[in-house]
Nucleic acid binder design. Sequence first.
DNA 1: CCGACTTTGTGCGCGCGTTCACAAAGGCTT
DNA 2: AAGCCTTTGTGAACGCGCGCACAAAGTCGG
Lengths: 216, 216
Amino acid sequence: MARLPVYLRALHTLADRGIVTVSSEELAAAAGVNSAKLRKDLSHLGSYGTRGVGYEVQYLVYQISRELGLTQDWSVAIVGLGNLGRALAGYGGFASRGFRMAALLDADPAIVGERINGLTVEHIDKLEHVITDCGISIAVLAVPASAAQAVCDRVVASGVTSILNFAPVVLTVPDGVDVRKVDLSIELQILAFHEQRKAGGPAGVEHEYLEAVDGQ
Amino acid sequence: MARLPVYLRALHTLADRGIVTVSSEELAAAAGVNSAKLRKDLSHLGSYGTRGVGYEVQYLVYQISRELGLTQDWSVAIVGLGNLGRALAGYGGFASRGFRMAALLDADPAIVGERINGLTVEHIDKLEHVITDCGISIAVLAVPASAAQAVCDRVVASGVTSILNFAPVVLTVPDGVDVRKVDLSIELQILAFHEQRKAGGPAGVEHEYLEAVDGQ
DNA sequence: CCGACTTTGTGCGCGCGTTCACAAAGGCTT
DNA sequence: AAGCCTTTGTGAACGCGCGCACAAAGTCGG
């Protein structure tokens, strides 16, 4: 489930506070979801809580981590080291979750060779070589929209089966390859949409019928 | 809806190619959705298609832009100018969609005063002053998790009603304030989850036989 | 040892979004 | 002008996730 990482984060902060046991009600509040939904999620992965008490925090952390595959390390490559790529390369939230930045790739000769966060940027010509050598199965694309599909095709051909795409294009991939996209501009557009509704709807027309946009 | 920005992006690329008219089938393919869903989405904002022909690209661009509130300019403040904040400040995809970076704020004295992308970073003490002065209604939070809720409270108190949050915490806001969150670590965790499933399920006691066969 | 209280796990109904399939509508050809 | 062909707009069924509410289960005090 997409909510497991949120639960995990909440559990980690609880654990940091020294809390040993938590009820579904409390954890649901911390994660911002309904308690019944949380219990159903947890029961679905077979985790046992104790009735009348709740869930043991540490045990749940382990169970969820295992379910998410965080007990093993994943090697990640970042392709494209413009501003966004650099920010991602330096983002501490990755390493602390079992993700290891294993390779940085870019096409710009002015960037290739640069050291970022302890890694040297390789030229994208070596993409296939680097990916197979480092055992990379997850690639992060922070390249211009015009290059995204071509780069995507190459990383997929090299054996990558999970892609996190920041380019504002719809990527086409074979079956068995997962793509998640993060489009910063779209997020702002959705906010603008809501903002405008609060201000009274689009100029000249009433639009009462569009309610929930996404809800996340 | 959350898909309108995707349609809009597809329409823009079609327009750049000089295409005047598009059928729901073609546009749906470009946006990566079902054609019936696309037609229903579009019909919700009015009957703008011609049967037997399709939709006029330019007209549809205008209608969707208006619906999303992109015909007016939105002033955006970025709080927190670490690596991520800088990347966002320089991201070209914002300006081209009617979003104007109006203010940059940070708490670190070493960063305050710096010029980024034509704007000077202000100290966060001036937050309330800057937000009201610049007429900012959308704030982007790229601050550490520990500071996020406090900063959130301050921008909300200053009149901001839409927040794009990059900090890995669940923000609590009053009714009427919209929050969208982007958690890069969660995206990778979801990919890892799928990746692991492809590899044969969670690595636990009941799956050890798979690991033995697999060899890793 | 027992009864009362707490909390989990889940069956069930509701509402929403998705998708199929088709009739209505407009254009194009002859 | 008339019929054919394309494409829209939408009615209706399907599936799914959400959340209420409750019974089972386990704890704790007496």
